[in-house]
Amino acid sequence: MNLALRMLDRTGLLAVIVVFWAIFVVFADGFLNRVTIFGLSRTVAVTAVIGLSQMVVLGIGQMNLAVGAIGGMIGVFTGWLMQSVGLPVWAAVIVALLFAAFVGWVNGIIITKTGINSFIVTLGMASVITGLVFILTKAEAFRDLPDAYTSFGKVPWVELGWLELSPLIFIAVAIAIVMALVYKRTTFGRWMLATGANPRAAELSGVPVNFVVQATHALSGLLAGAAGIMIVSRLGSALPSIGENWLLPSFAAPIVGGTLLSGGAVAVFGTLLGALLIESVSVGLTLMNVPSFWIQLFIGLVLLLAVLIDRARTVAVARGQRGVRQTPAGATSG
């Protein structure tokens, strides 16, 4: 019963994606060609990781407005490590990821120590981080990056006839699989969902709620940083403006995917599908020569619609007295 509903969730979203793809294949010239699909695989990968970074904090019933700021900072930081410090790619990536997790952890520390809501703390932190990045870089980008790194984001990995996929999408899927396992199979995953659904009950049941909040924000920072590193390898240069417009997709991907805003239930693969839907729509509409601002309006409407459908479904499910979506016991990731 529960499983069937979850399948419905995911197949519903899949059906919407299929409908859009059908429309674009017919009306948008060149949607199904190798360049478009390759490009799509790169953007979907980054958006999905951005979405996962927001999803983990939504799962504990909080939010992270600093996802974009952290992503931008880590992109620039990675560029600096490679270009100015001269670290090898692997070392730069590890150092940058650790730093990203640290910044996220600082968010978590401020939230748990002061008890201030996550919205305000991460809003303030985002502003502080972005301000610092621009002050320190004087708004200059790092463009002289190692080939090994930039080619990773530019050269396809899989080539099956017309189908070419970026390695970035494999990274995104790998991250999603790990996340799904964390939620399904680990104590920490259960802790996150219990904290999100009812922090008080979780605390009284021996869940170390403050630790969970801090660690989840660290994880969110880590994922935001990963998205930053991925996008720099795609762009080939570390621009300080990276992350400026991540706010909307960071919420849209997980919510369209079926993550509950109120916390306690997440949809890992749903977030991937959400990212696929959003990016397909923007690429498709662009190919149809729709001006970019109408695409923004459209994505706003898609988010609104997703939220409304989610609400209607939750209410319907509650009336039918059945389980909603995935909870820790009912297997993971709708």
């Binding site: 939010m63 919205f119 706010l247 909307l248 919420f251 919510i255 805003l261 109120s262 001006p291 601002f293 109408w294 695409i295 923004q296 309006l297 459209f298 994505i299 706003g300 409407l301 988010l303 609104l304 939220v307 409304l308 609400r311």
Partner: peptide, 26 residues
């Protein structure tokens, strides 16, 4: 809908901005 105003206004903000830029091609 009983949905948090945060997410509603995030979505409508995107829609309003679309209108703002779209009306006279930015």
């Amino acid at each position: 809908t009983g949905i948090n105003g945060f997410i509603i206004t995030l979505a409508t903000a995107s829609a309003f901005t679309g209108v703002t830029i779209g009306l006279n091609d930015a």
